[in-house]
């Protein structure tokens, strides 16, 4: 039995139906990412779990008990908001202590627990500061500490890193992950950044307009998209259908196909190989340097394909306009449900 179990969730707003029978389960101690484009209902799903948004129908079970009728105060859920939502009038210490204060715990005990938590997120030196005197990353760590100090049964993170710079985002991401594993805390993490979802989570749940499109391990979701939407959202898949798909595959096909840019080899000669069969002739349209990766746009008959190569040496870079041969790794070609 999963630790968090959402069954047949229905939610409609005045002008739209958002969830029509959504199911989701999260195992104990797992970190699950909800990944999806803006407006697909990630925040709403999180808020219904927390009890901040009413549901129309359905069951939300936490540890075997239906919590869907409980007030947010009684659910024992910690949440971190995208805009931090720190209490502006309270110091860092008081912010973190807030939840424990509501439980009317002994002052000394509160102080010990708050200080331990502040140490964990490396903010002990900032305990007396007000939120507006902190950097974005520090604020988010206060928000995290505030949610964790009440020892929640479930942690919900709503795009906690999206307002931060890339380097801080990466380090904070690791910090969240190691805290989560250390505490074995069941966590739902909302993001619209696929890299974040893939690196961080035990399981990735891909959402689109209120529906779950695909879920599974990061490897599975990344390498085997089930639909054109999934392939378009994750990675930079080449999506082909009809005649285009047939010309690349070398045989006719009814369904659409998806090919990852790194599953196409750039060759100097039309050498055949069991991995890719007969190479396709093409011409480089443009070249984009992405650091360790070089991304080529290649015109191949009527089809334009994106190919990624490792950027091993500057001498290997191909000029636009030059002719190449493309070897499409057949094992990596995904056939999509229409």
């Amino acid at each position: 039995m999963a630790f968090l179990n959402i069954q047949c969730l229905h939610k409609r707003y005045a002008d739209q139906t958002l969830f029509a029978g959504l199911n989701l389960s999260v195992e104990r101690g797992q970190l699950v990412s909800l990944l999806g484009p803006s407006g697909c209902g990630k925040s709403t799903l999180l808020r219904t779990i927390a009890g901040l948004t009413d549901i129309d129908q359905g069951r939300i079970e936490l540890d075997g008990h239906d919590i869907s009728r409980l007030a947010p105060q009684q659910r024992g859920i910690g949440m971190v908001f995208q805009n931090y939502a720190l209490f502006p009038n309270l110091s860092v210490f008081a912010n973190v202590a807030f939840g424990l204060k509501q439980q009317k715990l002994d002052k000394a005990l509160i102080a010990t627990r708050v200080n331990t938590m502040l140490e964990r997120v490396e903010l002990s030196a900032f305990a007396k500061r007000l939120p507006h005197q902190l950097s974005g990353g520090q604020r988010q760590r206060v928000a995290l500490a505030r949610a964790l100090v009440i020892q929640p049964r479930l942690l919900l993170l709503d795009e906690p890193l999206s307002a931060l710079d890339a380097p801080i985002r990466r380090s904070l991401r690791q910090q969240i992950r190691s805290l989560q594993q250390e505490l074995a805390l069941t966590t739902v993490f909302v993001t619209h950044d696929q890299e974040e979802a893939l690196t961080l989570s035990d399981r990735v749940v891909l959402m689109h307009s209120g529906e779950i499109i695909q879920q599974g391990s990061a490897e599975n979701v990344y390498s085997a998209p089930v639909s054109p939407f999934a392939a378009g959202f994750i990675g930079h898949y080449n999506l082909l259908a009809g005649a285009a798909a047939a010309s690349v595959l070398g045989r006719s096909t009814l369904s659409a196909i998806a090919i990852r840019p790194e599953a196409i080899e750039l060759l100097d000669t039309p050498q055949a190989d069991p991995r890719w069969g007969t190479p396709l002739a093409g011409r480089i349209l443009s070249r984009q340097l992405l650091g360790n990766i070089v991304r080529y746009q290649v015109q191949c008959a009527e089809v334009t394909l994106i190919c990624d190569c490792l950027n091993r040496s500057a001498a290997d870079l191909r000029a636009s306009g030059s002719a190449v041969w493309l070897g499409v790794l057949q094992a990596e070609v995904r056939t999509l449900a229409a």
């Binding site: 105060q73 859920i77 908001f81 939502a85 439980q103």
Partner: peptide, 25 residues
């Protein structure tokens, strides 16, 4: 000037009732 809804939500999740949240936050 303050993110009112999020502050109230955060206070609720931390165990404060609505009157408590208003008074304290």
């Amino acid at each position: 000037a303050i993110p009112l809804r999020d502050l109230l939500d955060a206070a609720h999740l931390l165990g404060a009732s609505t009157p408590q949240a208003f008074i304290q936050v």
